[in-house]
Design a binder for these strands. Structure first.
Lengths: 252, 252
DNA sequence: CGCGGCATTGATCCCGGTCAAAGGTCGTGG
DNA sequence: CCACGACCTTTGACCGGGATCAATGCCGCG
């Protein structure tokens, strides 16, 4: 089964934020999301999970919709965004393979989500997931940790939006994507190639800029020899050090 | 004892975000923060908590400091902020009486905090608090809920910083403060008086603007008859409806 | 080959930042 | 109680970064 495969075959990832002062005997790694759960929780989740495909541009849910599922992205990328009455939109988060969409203890989504390209996702009914969590402190702690991390990330985003000029926002964005696509080698790789799953308009909506300003920033980086742009959404980082220097590094 | 008083005498507040499908027999309301905990947790917290006074401008902790305590503000207001190498600062949150400062499962603070005026706070050693939480799912759930709410708030702040012009930011700020200072009557009160515990510089750092722009927005609201400014940090909302109309209401 | 959608580039405009000065407010000391 | 001074706020004049408007380029697909 695709679902079970998705849950079971992924290698263990590290969990810096988890205190590991509890017995490991009936604890298993749970899927790409890097969640910790008891064996019992795992089998139960396997039973209630179902997979689903999304095509490019498809909306998964809208802001204010009642929360029905916790989602795990198996493949592809999505955007989470908020809309203003005047039609302007602000992307709060890009969500990629291996990440979860979960808002426990909340009744309605606080943002809409849309697939950037074709996606495969796994969905777990929220109420049942809540019950599993209630009986599995390790799982709850795990989700808890993800929430904390997400909160820290949004705080960085607030600093970026409130106090950084366009050039710094874009360089931070590139370095951030680079790190997410290549966590191990990001700092050392001198000529790293990254793929942007989103269009310029999405980058602009994420950074609080316009398409034109984002494009101009990319062009400036190309002129200055910091990046190559073989295609609009293929970026080669040619001088990561210099890029980081002018980003005021939000990325540690 | 001041501490115990602070924990025990406050009236119960509502908890929209809490499922109340568990037995209420040994559950007690816990202090102004509106946390739920077992009686046992309460007495234990009472024992390990200590109170502390801060004078205006005093720093409680710096960004990147190791996390030592969970704090509860008994009286006064604080700001949480991040700094950039070039000296610019961005306030991510204002924290007032009855609110908590807690970053569970994280090793270091992701922001600095400073008292806006004189403050009284309650502090609970983080490690002991973690242990209490591990044994008290209701308390954990409660903190969990607060974290979720805070995440939603930061997402609104991202929308504000990324996509709103100065006037809308300031009107949203005023309406937000109004609602926090007077949750019950905020919508009906026609001539509501609010006290700003922070200076213009702090408002500017919170809204991603400059002191001058904030001041100009206040003056414009005064000219347009939306507010009175008996003193720099005393605001009377004279036409909340019209204020809300031009805020693109982030405040429901 | 031509069309449609996205990205780039250029020209101009305007909101909000910067710089500078004047006005208020409050605490302190005479 | 008033006078002084430090600091905060307000107001004005000007400037610049990024938005807006518009044209051109690029690429995939029918």
């Amino acid at each position: 089964m695709g679902i079970i495969t998705a849950i079971n075959t992924e290698p263990a990832s590290t969990h810096r934020y988890l205190n590991s002062d509890r017995q490991n005997n009936d604890i298993r790694q749970f899927g790409v999301a890097g969640l910790m759960a008891t064996a019992h929780s795992c089998t139960y989740m396997r039973d209630i999970a179902s997979s689903r495909n999304l095509t490019a541009g498809e909306t998964l849910f809208w802001e204010d919709d009642p929360i029905q599922y916790t989602y795990l992205i198996i493949d592809g990328s999505m955007k989470a965004y908020k809309l203003l009455p005047n039609g302007r939109s602000q992307i709060t988060r890009f969500i990629t393979t291996g990440e979860i969409i979960s808002s426990p203890l909340i009744d309605n989504y606080s943002y809409s989500t849309e697939a950037l390209g074709d996606c495969t996702i796994l969905q777990l009914p929220q109420k049942r997931f809540d019950k599993i969590m209630a009986k599995d402190p390790a799982l709850m702690k795990s989700i808890f940790g993800k929430l904390s991390i997400e909160l820290q990330r949004t705080q960085k985003q607030i600093l970026l939006l409130g106090r950084m000029p366009a050039i710094e926002r874009v360089s931070n964005f590139l370095l951030d994507i680079a790190q997410r696509q290549n966590p191990q080698t990001a700092h050392f790789e001198s000529d790293m190639l990254i793929t942007l799953p989103m269009a310029r308009a999405d980058i602009a909506d994420y950074l609080g800029l316009t398409i034109e300003t984002v494009s101009r920033a990319f062009s400036k980086f190309r002129r200055d020899g910091l990046i190559d742009l073989p295609r609009p959404n293929l970026v080669r980082l040619r001088d990561q050090t210099r890029l980081r220097a002018q980003s005021h590094s939000l990325t540690g």
